[in-house]
């Protein structure tokens, strides 16, 4: 569990000529989660996209799984990203979308894995329906199913509970807890302090492009893990 999954030192990134991230530094060990909070437009999503290699960075150092990540932004198959959209084709069914991701990630026994993950997010009955017929909350669950399927070590979760009902929030909180217990890591953005307290090991606020107001958390999640 002492393995560092991701480490940023003085990370900076401009968007449209405006500094969004400036000198962001942190490290995340296996089995731990970091909750990033901040106002709208503070750069939380940009931070996750830079960590995931979706966007490049302009200054500082980014280490992922112990090796320096290219400044141009190179994605890594060991990273799972859950953004504001499902990243799935609306005209394909959930099962077809997951098969596509399974083939891209070269997952063995993909049919069996799909069956398992759709049950875990409680979408087994809906897996053969096109995604365009899903409600917002169901799409969010589908996105969680995609995340579970690829079995990534580092999860980057951008407001992962948006649109979920209480049942969905409980299910996905359990998924995050299991992931961390298995030695995975997660960087999570949220606006809700209750979520941060419940699910994070550490919390920080992204303010003026920097992570500030660090706080160690010992919320429900940590208590459940110890239990």
């Amino acid at each position: 569990m002492d393995r560092v999954l991701v480490e940023a030192r003085g990370l900076s990134r401009n968007l449209a000529g405006r500094p969004v991230l400036s000198s962001v530094s942190f490290s995340l060990r296996a089995g731990r989660s970091l909750v990033v909070m901040g106002a709208n437009g503070a750069g939380k999503s940009t931070l996750l996209q830079v960590l995931g290699g979706i966007l490049g960075y302009q200054g500082g150092v980014l280490m992922r799984f112990g090796t320096p990540a290219c400044a141009e932004g190179i994605p890594d198959g060991r990273i799972g990203y859950l953004g504001h959209k499902s990243l799935m084709y609306p005209n394909l069914t959930l099962a077809e979308n997951l098969q596509l991701y399974g083939r891209l990630w070269r997952i063995v026994n993909v049919a069996q894995r799909i069956d398992t993950v759709v049950r875990r997010v409680d979408l087994a009955w809906w897996q053969h329906e096109p995604l365009k017929r899903y409600s917002q909350g169901m799409r969010q669950r589908a996105a969680w199913a995609r995340l579970l399927l690829i079995d990534a070590q580092l999860w980057l979760l951008d407001e992962p509970w948006a649109g979920l009902d209480p049942d969905g929030r409980q299910i996905t909180a359990g998924l995050l807890r299991d992931h961390l217990a298995r030695g995975g890591g997660a960087v999570v953005t949220t606006h809700r302090w209750e979520d941060a307290q419940r699910l994070g090991h550490m919390a920080a606020v992204l303010e003026s492009g920097r992570l500030a107001h660090w706080r160690e958390l010992a919320g429900t999640l940590a208590a459940e893990e110890q239990g």
Binding site: Y81, G83, L87, Y89, R139
Partner: peptide
């Protein structure tokens, strides 16, 4: 056009094998 609605390009690009 099929990729824009749900940001599917991001998902495809993140898969092993590069962009």
């Amino acid at each position: 056009g099929r990729e824009t609605a749900e940001d599917v390009m991001v998902g495809m690009a993140m898969a092993p094998g590069g962009r």
